[in-house]
């Protein structure tokens, strides 16, 4: 179910062959507290039909108890899996989720925005090829947005999508979007972020995630999902992990070197 393709039913061997060749993209969501990172991941998985029915039924029940959306389905609960997170309505530690499309396989790390848990954000970021940095359209670039951007740059994540979220709460205003983009560019010019993109979204309502938003027809770029599926990551350092060298450890082992050089 975390995989969608007509080939599965028609020709499973062909599907497996295709799936075996997929590339892997690892990305994180990050940014300031409560700007909608977990909501975005939950909604992305829900809209691309990556959740199982029993999971959705369970999430609907839990939304009534722990949801921050007034009893309706709260997509953030898809990744906020710890008791304390549900009780407090915030993310404490990274959650990993997995899904694949016809083109790629994705590993997502949903990181916490709260300042106190910044080191957990760094844990999630260290293995990522791409970062989605969220900004609440009402508040613009905040201290924590800058802190996370700095960590992203420091860890050498080359591809960054700045997702300006909660566009519904600012009347889907292009002006607001443009202003935040330009503020962010000013700030980011001091960082090493070579590949920077901006997408206006409303994560809670799934706007510009999988489907384009009718409320923001002024935006002509790709949806987040489209972008994730097509961004070129082939030659990047973070995604280019070395193939396993069999044999070498054994030689070193026998030579008495228990702490042989770390591969990969």
């Amino acid at each position: 179910m975390s995989h969608q393709s007509d080939l599965i039913a028609k020709d499973i061997l062909a599907y497996l062959e295709q799936h075996e060749r997929k590339e892997l993209l690892r990305f994180i969501t990050c940014g300031s507290v409560d700007d909608g990172k977990s909501t975005l991941i939950g909604r992305l998985l829900y809209d691309s039909k990556m959740l199982y029915e029993d999971q959705i039924a369970q999430l609907e029940n839990e939304s009534k108890v722990h949801g921050t959306t007034g009893g309706g389905f709260d997509p953030a609960l898809v990744t906020d899996g710890l008791r304390a997170e549900r009780e407090q309505g915030i993310t404490i530690d990274v959650a990993y989720r997995y899904f694949s499309t016809a083109k790629r396989k994705f590993i997502i790390a949903d990181t916490p925005g709260h300042e106190q848990y910044t080191r957990n954000m760094a844990t999630g970021a260290s293995t990522a090829d791409l970062a989605v940095i969220l900004i609440d359209a009402r508040y613009g670039v905040l201290t924590q947005t800058k802190r996370h951007s700095f960590i992203v740059s420091l860890l050498g994540i080359r591809h960054v999508v700045v997702a300006i979220n909660k566009m519904d709460l600012v009347g889907y205003s292009q002006e607001t979007f443009d202003k935040i983009c330009s503020d962010y560019r000013d700030f980011a010019s001091r960082l090493d972020l070579p590949d920077l993109h901006f997408i206006p979204i409303a994560a809670l309502h799934g706007e510009n995630l999988v489907d384009p938003s009718p409320n923001m027809s002024w935006y002509r770029g790709s949806t987040l999902m489209n972008f994730l599926e097509s961004v070129y990551i082939g030659s990047d350092r973070n995604s280019n992990r070395q193939p396993t060298q069999l044999g070498l450890p054994r030689i070193l082992w026998h030579a008495g070197l228990r702490n042989y050089p770390k591969g990969g």
Partner: peptide
């Protein structure tokens, strides 16, 4: 040169197993 996702997962897991044996 690009590793498929399964080869990447395999390499990562083998690395972890060796780390544990060494540490």
């Amino acid at each position: 040169y690009h590793l498929t996702h399964l080869k990447q997962l395999e390499a990562e897991s083998i690395h972890i197993i060796r780390e544990v044996a060494a540490e």
